[in-house]
Design a protein around this nucleic acid. Structure first.
Lengths: 337, 337
DNA sequence: TTGAAAGCGCTAACAT
DNA sequence: ATGTTAGCGCTTTCAA
């Protein structure tokens, strides 16, 4: 089967085949215009005959320059939010002919660190990180050595670096305002683990909007540190069972709204619903869900573009880019409480 | 800002710092037990002081062996089906310490080729490809040079290679059989572009099940080459408007079932629905959808494991692995037609 | 217009 | 137990 394990042709082989020196082959491969056309043609012929492809890694080693590889560390490639980011990074990167090495940290700070450092060992030109950890000082040595890093979705901690974020506060505020404008006053919120930056921001936006409308958020109606759909389902049930149950719910992410929807489906209760994160097929759900939506791929694109600028030597202090959200209103007919 | 653009420490620097030779540093880095503990300690100290990290690329160049990078070419990283595959590949790869470079072909055969070849230039150890093209002979030179390739979701054309597939025929057959068992006879099918391998297989499975039950598929009820949700919605409307409309529909993928659901929602008609591909939140939809489900990540895991075996030198003819599907029955109460 | 030699950062083979 | 030399595949001097 594999008896003919041929060896990969090197420039030397092409040179011999074409009757020229290695350097001439190198020139042809690099489209150096100084080579005489007929020499170039002979070399090209040899290249094709041998099926030669330059070793990009060897080249990168010698030129000492860019490897034209970017490292991307996200939490979970199987999660549509992160895969959209990855796709955005890839898109924005493609033009420059660079490739992207992606790894999932699974929200494990240790794994994030390992991945980031492994990527540095592979000599990626830059790093894009959706942080899981809460201390990014491990990157300091690499930063000093000129590795460029851009953070996505959450800012780094312990170091200062370019960051691309969503407008979590504004989005949450818009969601709460929507419910307030519909006349709701008993508005509950279910939020994620408050150790997470985006969870804190969303809670803040929600509370700001409430207070701005003269409604003090009630402790009993603001449930935090809910990290999965099952818990969210349970918490929604508890909220509905309250003596003075809420008439509306702000669900701070898609796992939470999924749980809430399950609770509503099984209890046959009604609740005006606003979710941070849109749902696929939302228009086909049995229950209308107004959503705070955004372009996840754009997070990746902007981050990749910022990274590219830095790699081209763009100076200046770390930037913080904040991307807007959009409110998608559904089930307009809902009456107020 | 960047005035202190320090240069990356090499083994030489560590050697000087520790007062030993480069080779000794190399030994320490590679955990060669032959170095005296106290020497090793001195070297380790120097490594930490300088923030040294071995250049994996230079190492790979010298050892001539594995680069410990895999290339993955899929159609679209933003599509959950493919990102699940990517995640599976990553999972199965992680153990070996290898990293994965992923690229999206966007169903463009030319881009698939470019990506695959670019990955070879980066000297990946192996390639995992979800084919878009219909001619993979461009890989022949690389195969001869020992690059290992495993195909995912569709077999290659023009070459023979390891492949990991879903049981498209069996899944489609199970879906159709389910509808037949419910008593349906006028069963429509909407299928994707028949140039696509999986689309052909699913059609075949559907028709096989129908004929096995003594029902000849009607031309008017079998609509093919429907590639997006909007078209599927339109086609569903047309099917419903037929003089003798179907009582059930087999939708050959998730885009198609989405369109069908939209058509049903807007026309308020009923139709027993089976979909190849499960839907997220299916249990919360206003309309029950029985689904042919499968583990997309497992496609990636199995492919990566097969690739790993080949890289370890496992001989033998190309394997074809077929993964099973599961029928998830919903809305059992549906009466027959 | 072309080529010879040196070296990128590392390790394999051979000293010592 | 440690060091020296050569060379992976390529490009960068510098010469011819």
């Amino acid at each position: 089967m594999n008896g003919t394990a041929k060896t990969r042709p090197r420039m030397r082989d092409v040179a011999t085949e074409a009757g020229v020196s290695v350097k001439t082959v190198s020139r042809v491969v690099n489209r150096d215009p100084v080579v005489r056309p007929e020499t170039a043609a002979r070399v090209q012929a040899a290249i094709r005959r041998l099926g030669f492809r330059r070793d990009e890694m060897a080249r990168a080693l010698r030129t000492g320059g860019r490897s034209r590889m970017l490292g991307l560390v996200i939490k979970d490639l199987a999660n549509p939010f992160y895969s959209a980011i990855a796709r955005g990074v890839e898109e924005a990167t493609r033009g420059g002919g660079a490739l992207v090495i992606t790894g999932s940290s699974d929200e494990d700070p240790e794994r994030e660190r390992e991945l980031a450092l492994q990527l540095c060992e592979r000599r990626v030109d830059g790093l894009l990180i959706v942080p899981s950890g809460d201390d990014h000082r491990y990157l300091l040595p690499e930063l000093e050595l000129g590795v460029q890093v851009v953070f996505i979705d959450r800012p780094p901690e312990g170091i200062d670096a370019d960051t691309v974020l969503l407008d979590n506060i504004g989005g949450a505020r818009a969601g709460a305002e929507h419910l307030l404008e519909l006349g709701h006053r008993r508005i509950a919120m279910i939020g994620d683990d408050q150790r997470i930056f985006t969870a804190r921001e969303r809670k803040r936006g929600f509370c700001e909007a409430m207070r701005a409308a003269g409604v003090e958020p009630e402790d009993a109606l603001v449930r935090l540190d809910v990290h999965d759909a099952a818990t969210a389902e349970q918490v929604t049930r508890e909220l509905l069972a309250l003596p003075g149950p809420p008439t509306a719910l702000f669900a701070a992410n898609n796992r939470i709204v999924t749980g809430a929807l399950r609770a509503l489906a099984s209890t046959r209760r009604e609740l005006a619903l606003v979710s941070f994160d849109d749902l696929e097929l939302a228009e086909l759900l049995s229950f209308p869900v107004t959503a705070v939506s955004y372009d996840a791929a754009e997070l990746g694109r902007r981050a990749a573009r910022l990274l590219a600028k830095r790699l081209e030597g763009e100076p200046g202090p770390p930037e913080r880019i904040v991307l807007p959200t959009t409110l998608i209103v559904r089930g307009e007919e809902e009456a107020a409480a």
